[in-house]
């Protein structure tokens, strides 16, 4: 079972397909859950504390805005943990403020820099593309090493 980072990190479709074909999807929910279930200082809504931008320094320089570093504190460890990635390049749901947009760019850059297997796709717009989409994802996930092989 390989750990596969999904982009958009909140994608229902990618999360489901990765789990369906026997691997572990790494998405935003895992990072958020870790913070929500850790006791400490109350910092609603996402329990992002002033510590996160400091942890984000591992992934972005100090002059990068704290919003990007704070977000990278969630995504950075997941990217480090990932053994493969699936990226949907035309995901219009992955939009947001400037902090989200720049973090997304940094996530994609970090994934490509890591040199791991990456599948890049577009969302299907009809049934025929749906078949191709699922087939490409299945073929990619089947080609990944099982646990212990890597």
């Amino acid at each position: 079972m390989a750990k596969v980072f999904i982009y958009p990190a909140t994608s229902l479709i990618l999360s489901d397909l990765v789990a369906r074909f026997g691997h572990k999807p790494l998405g935003a929910a895992l990072g958020i859950r870790e913070r929500i279930q850790t006791a400490g200082v109350d910092s609603p809504p996402l329990q992002i504390t002033p510590e996160e931008p400091k942890r984000g320094l591992k992934y972005a320089a100090v002059e990068v805005p704290s919003g990007v570093r704070g977000r990278m504190a969630i995504y950075g460890p997941l990217i480090e943990e990932a053994e493969a990635a699936i990226i949907v390049t035309d995901a219009d749901l992955a939009f947001g403020c400037m902090g989200c947009a720049r973090t997304d760019e940094l996530i994609l850059f970090s994934l490509r820099q890591k040199g791991m297997p990456i599948l890049e796709l577009k969302y299907p717009t009809n049934e025929e593309e749906g078949i191709l989409f699922v087939a490409a994802v299945r073929k990619f996930l089947t080609s990944l090493p099982e646990e212990g092989e890597a």
Binding site: T125, G130, I131
Partner: peptide
């Protein structure tokens, strides 16, 4: 777009 995935 779930229906396209279902079809796939």
């Amino acid at each position: 777009i779930l229906r396209y995935i279902t079809r796939g």
